[in-house]
Write a protein that binds this DNA or RNA. Structure first.
Lengths: 208, 208, 208, 208
DNA sequence: GATGAATGAGTTTTCATTCAT
DNA sequence: GATGAATGAAAACTCATTCAT
């Protein structure tokens, strides 16, 4: 028991250290990009010795992948929960769009890094990572598509387009608006008001 | 005349070499990313000595910027022309969406690199470049927004949303669909059929 | 105590390594000149990896400056001490000339490098260094001039020339004789016998 | 005849071109030092194609050596003539010291380069050059020494030191004063007034 | 004979990674 | 188990030199 308890405290301590390293890495990567950050820099920012960093991550790529995966995990969970909240399809979709905006606002630097990855703009990392991220992303899209489909089945939405296409469309508009907002926060209503997005997608879907 | 011809042959020869270098660089960058490609590699792929490469581009960043600017030029022109073709707003927008799909299909590797830049996912390059690209991109968006506005003024479209937002939305859907297509060409109708996109945007704009 | 000792051993070890690098650099520079010696060469001669060299000196110029400054320090101190030894002005000047000869004999390769710098023949290094060295050199000359002046005030020397000019003259003769000796040690009496120099300068100064 | 005339005009033209190249090189070398000047730079400054430069000098070192030798030639001649002018030993020596100052004043940039070589401060150039220069320099020193010797033989000078030593001493004082003047022209009497130097050397030699 | 485009060896410097303490 | 000194492969870039036109 003693042993187990000790070991689990150790475990917790380890996890905390790991988190500190990942946080340092996240901030640095999002400030300067993967290739412009050195392992020494990360170790220093996290206040660990370089050797200790390598005890936790077998190399720079591994550290990067772990980081991205962790972020992906967090966002995925938040978005999936949002998709579940609300009574009908419209409410759920609004909840999703709202949650996405909130997550974005609260994690700008994180997001920039995340998009670098999901947008396929990152050549840094040799495949493999891509796939896990994409699968999760597709999972979200599938959920959204399911809502559109359900809405159509229940005749709440007109069948104006393939549900999956609608999911992709709605999410891409959200992303695009978020980028717009990133550059000129004052001119953009989105992360504050989810209906800007819903309007565009729904005006056609709903009877008028 | 002789002289002029000779001189212009030289010029043309130079341009051809420059193109070869840019092409080699484009392919390598889009395969592996800016930081994972060395100048030696580019020189080798282009079949020139490293020194010759540096005669044409004063450093790696200059080469990269030249490349991106060149591509941006090409796409911008094509898209602007497409926006001008067609009798009414709808035709012009369809023409744009179609042209965008075609350009994308014909320049997949080019595009991947281009998106890395326009999507802001690149930390590689010190500002400056960003701005030129963004300006051009905004120019296109403004043109599209103008079409939506004009359509609304002429009562052809319902004023369901801010015209610029609609422009951003439409273009982001196109981009998103293109990425989908990139990953699974067989499952996606877009680059072939522009109406998939127009449907989503227009169903709300038109009638009912 | 233990701690302090350990830490100071580290320090000492570091200093020893630094010295080894500087020594390797000194020998190479004095053999072949700043521009004909590569950092790899220095690292190799000092039996360190190139990266280790850069841990100690942030770049080639820094290494060079450190080296010159270190040498300058050493010589300056020795010469200043020599100038203070002896009962009267003549003894002090003889002591200086003797010390200078001894230093030269013991540090031929060092000296060659040092002269390259003090003689202004070096375009290698961007200002700054020059100034520190020149200041120190002028400090020595001022001391020597003060001795001549004092000798004149006490009527021990005839006022045949400006004291500072005499200082410059005496030191330049010493340098010139040392160079002569460098090329043909057997034909030259100087570094062994300081009076060869004093004779020339003093025969006019002293009553005959 | 025709041929010869043509050829000799050719010859003269060639020499003029060579001079232009050497002049360009001299200015650049004395501004920035041997290693900080590229062959392209020299060609450009001289307004010739790089290939043409290589027609005249087989490589950079050859160009440098030619330049130094040419300068050495010129100075040597001037100084030797000065040594011959004047009725007695004192006049000849004064003439020499005066000529040296004048040459220096008129060719500051040239001189800087020349000293870099004669002072042994240049590691740039692999031996060989050194020797020719040194021989010429020693030739001058020998002439000066001969004057001191002659003066002693004729009882005009007291035999206070070895004549060659005196020659070295006098010349080194001249050099030293010239360097002092280079740095602060206003504080130094030498190149204007040769007697400052003669005073120091002669006060002991003459009378009293 | 002049030209200057092309070459590629060689230089400085960085940084991921290892391993003795 | 943590540390950080040491490593050296690899990158960007320069420039003396050659040679086809």
């Amino acid at each position: 028991m003693q042993q187990t308890a000790g070991s689990s405290r150790r475990e917790r301590e380890k996890l905390r250290q790991r988190q500190e390293m990942l946080t340092a890495a996240l901030n640095l990567f999002s400030e300067k990009g993967f290739h412009n950050v050195s392992m020494h820099e990360i170790a220093e920012r996290a206040e660990f010795a370089i050797g200790t960093l390598y005890k936790f991550f077998k190399n720079k790529e591994d550290l990067y992948k772990s980081l991205i995966l962790e972020l992906s995990d967090r966002f995925h969970e938040t978005l999936m929960q949002a998709l579940a909240a609300g009574d009908d399809e419209i409410e759920k979709l609004r909840s999703y769009v709202q949650a996405k905006g909130a997550v974005f606002k609260d994690n700008v630097s994180t997001i920039r890094l995340y998009f670098a990855e999901t947008r396929g703009a990152s050549f840094n990392i040799k495949a493999g990572l891509d796939n896990q991220i994409k699968q999760r992303y597709n999972h979200v899209l599938d959920q959204i598509a399911a809502l559109f489909k359900s809405g159509m089945l229940h005749k709440r939405f007109k069948p104006i387009a393939d549900p999956f296409h609608l999911a992709v469309a709605m999410d891409s508009i959200a992303n695009a608006f978020l980028f717009q907002w990133l550059e000129a926060p004052e001119n953009n209503s989105y992360p504050a008001d989810p209906d800007v997005i819903l309007n565009i997608i729904f005006k056609g879907l709903l009877d008028s």
